[in-house]
Design a protein around this nucleic acid. Structure first.
Lengths: 195, 195
DNA sequence: GGGACAATAGCACGACCGGTCGGATCTAGA
DNA sequence: TCTAGATCCGACCGGTCGTGCTATTGTCCC
């Protein structure tokens, strides 16, 4: 790993932290350069444009998400245990990845929902891919008899995302101490209603 | 209604549209002034600061929300019909209020979740007030026997917001044509599971 | 050790940001 | 009709934004 790649990794780690706090639009060059001890232009040379920096940061966060949320499922029992594990890690993955603030993907949703462009497309694809993963987990849980045969994986995934979103709101924005308990109760009801 | 108040109303109507598309941080003075055919300083004189403009826009949107979502409930049957009516109008209120794009309050959640200040506090209070309204509607539905006696209004309100949030994501960001159907199905399951 | 090249610094540009100020214009009350 | 105050404009401020350009430094291979 050459020096350039090492510096790039340092930048992206700092960029991911910034994205959690200020969103992808808040990935301004000067403050980010100050954070890693570089000048703005020195940092800029690694990416060539702000948009490229945003996409690289998105990619970096996606790898982190994959490693912290999805990958550990391999060691869990197939079906519901795996689904519950992924959901639990999904709730707390920013903290587990040493990221401050909230999930950067949710920040991107608001920032890019009315702004077409490659960053938005990349983010949409990330969400679609993860939803597909969730749907497969749900289908597997159905096959194992952990969820009722009539369960629609797409509908279940939609409601699971709703819970994650509400948790983001209740904990990150409203600072509601009951956020965790509410989310867990809702998940239990979501699973229980299909058993 | 004097000329000043009329101009101010024109500005706020345009500001609400902008907030739906670009968020409250996107309420930049110059573009907004262009939109209403004024100069930046002429517009600025009505508010005194950008923060004051943001709060005024928030207030304006809140009044719109109250009128379009909550107020019509008075003519609906108490209990579940009223709850369902509010939820339905909650889903589509930006369109009903002739606002482009998505719900401005959800945009504010991301923009102000890590930025303390009066705008954030105002937004938190708006959410808290509306959640209290929802909880009262749920409690009323319980009293009318439309929902099971064991229903926790706070938990129900939390899950209802989750559905609204997921609808915002699926429709506004993912452009999922099934968003409406998924949200309606989830609402039916939420209500049905408590009956 | 020197030469090639990646990596970074320094500097400047045009555009836009929120905000300020003096003065022109319009409105409303006496 | 006259005037006081509300209203609005145009120019401008310091600052930050993303983006280029040229030097200079550092690194690594021969």
């Amino acid at each position: 790993m050459g020096k350039g790649a090492r510096t790039r990794a340092t930048i992206l780690a700092a960029a991911a932290e910034t994205a959690c706090l200020a969103g992808f639009d808040g990935l301004n060059l000067q403050p980010l350069a100050d954070k890693v001890g570089m000048t703005k232009s020195g940092l800029y040379a690694h990416f060539g444009s702000k948009e490229a920096l945003q996409i690289a940061t998105l990619e970096y966060a996606a790898e982190l998400f994959q490693a912290r949320v999805v990958a550990p499922a391999k060691t869990e029992g197939a079906g519901l245990p795996r689904l519950a594990g992924v959901f639990g890690r999904w709730l707390e993955w920013p903290a587990n990845a040493a990221l401050p603030g909230n999930c950067p993907f949710f920040a991107g949703v608001v920032e890019f929902d009315d702004a077409a462009g490659p960053v938005r497309e990349r983010l949409v694809r990330l969400f679609r891919d993860f939803r597909a993963v969730v749907e497969q987990l749900v289908a597997s849980a159905v096959r194992h008899g952990h969820l009722g045969a009539g369960t629609d994986p797409a509908q279940f995934a939609h409601e699971l995302l709703a819970l994650r979103y509400a948790h983001h709101w209740a904990q990150g924005f409203m600072h509601d101490p009951a956020a965790d308990a509410r989310t867990r109760a809702a998940f239990a009801r979501l699973v229980g209603g299909r058993a």
